[in-house]
């Protein structure tokens, strides 16, 4: 009873400022004046929705993969260094957190532009003859989103790595495992909960990206969030609510799926030994 009372202010807050608006949005998806399933039914063969949804999912998948491949080694480095070096790595990781998405996107425009730093450097090095189109492509979206979302991958992995008893790596080494074998057979499997958390976080956050793809992405890179914003602006609120519901449902389904994955569920339990 008392725990419930303690949580009551937050629960009330969540109810009023989160649950009710979300519910209102869900209801809007069934029509603004009359009850109808038409909006949901039409999604299945709505080419704009399908293409946009696919764009959103594939971009999220690429960004997740990119952050994982780039972030894991950084998380390892973060955990295995001490003192000033570790502090510097942490600051570098967190720096994007403290910069507005808008400013970062402009920075990417300066870097990746037709006459930006990357192209100028490649031209100067004689590697290319004409500037590459990097900005205003899907690649630019993925690169910029990876940059923005890296901390969300690195921090949970670093946290999981930090929770691994350091004597386990020693034990592996003492039992004859080379550093690579020890990593592969002990550290990597034990960091799976962190990887799972990072993957989930980055993927779900990617689904909602809006400003970055709009600013640096290609002409056809419309994400679900962009479509929702567009439809809100076009006053098609029922359709927008319907799209929002799809986005919300996708995120929730992913979270549920991750908790049920056998390997990861197992790993989660193991950490609470």
């Amino acid at each position: 009873m008392i725990p419930l009372l303690l949580a009551a202010p937050l629960l009330l807050y969540m109810l009023v400022f989160y649950a009710l608006p979300v519910l209102a949005m869900l209801l809007k998806g069934f029509g603004e004046q009359h009850w109808t399933l038409a909006h949901y039914a039409s999604l299945a063969d709505d080419p704009v929705f399908l293409k946009t949804f696919w764009n959103t999912l594939s971009t999220a998948a690429l960004v997740t993969l990119g952050t994982l491949l780039l972030g894991y080694p950084v998380a390892l480095a973060l955990v295995r260094t001490r003192g000033v070096t570790a502090a510097i790595i942490l600051v570098v990781i967190l720096l994007p957190f403290w910069t507005s998405v808008l400013v970062r996107s402009y920075a990417w425009m300066v870097l990746m532009g037709r006459h930006g730093l990357i192209n100028e450097a490649l031209l100067a090095a004689g590697l290319i003859e004409r500037p590459l189109r990097i900005l205003n492509t899907s690649l630019a979206t993925v690169i910029a989103m990876i940059h923005i979302l890296l901390p969300y991958m690195i921090l949970p992995i670093a946290n999981a790595l930090r929770q691994i008893d350091p004597s386990l790596a020693r034990a592996a080494s003492g039992l004859g495992a080379s550093p690579f074998q020890a990593f592969r057979q002990v550290v990597l499997p034990l960091s799976v909960p962190g990887v799972a958390a990072g993957v989930l976080l980055v993927f779900v956050l990617s689904l909602g990206f809006y400003i970055t793809p709009a600013m640096v992405g290609g002409p056809r890179d419309i994400t679900l969030s962009m479509l929702i914003a567009q439809q809100v602006d076009q006053l098609n609120w029922a359709y927008a609510a319907c799209l929002s519901t799809v986005l919300l449902a996708t995120s929730l389904a992913l979270i549920a799926a991750f908790q049920r994955l056998p390997g990861i569920g197992n790993a989660f339990r193991m950490n609470t030994r």
Partner: peptide, 8 residues
């Protein structure tokens, strides 16, 4: 000291 068994 703490056995260092591999939990996984």
């Amino acid at each position: 000291q703490n056995y260092a068994l591999f939990p996984h």
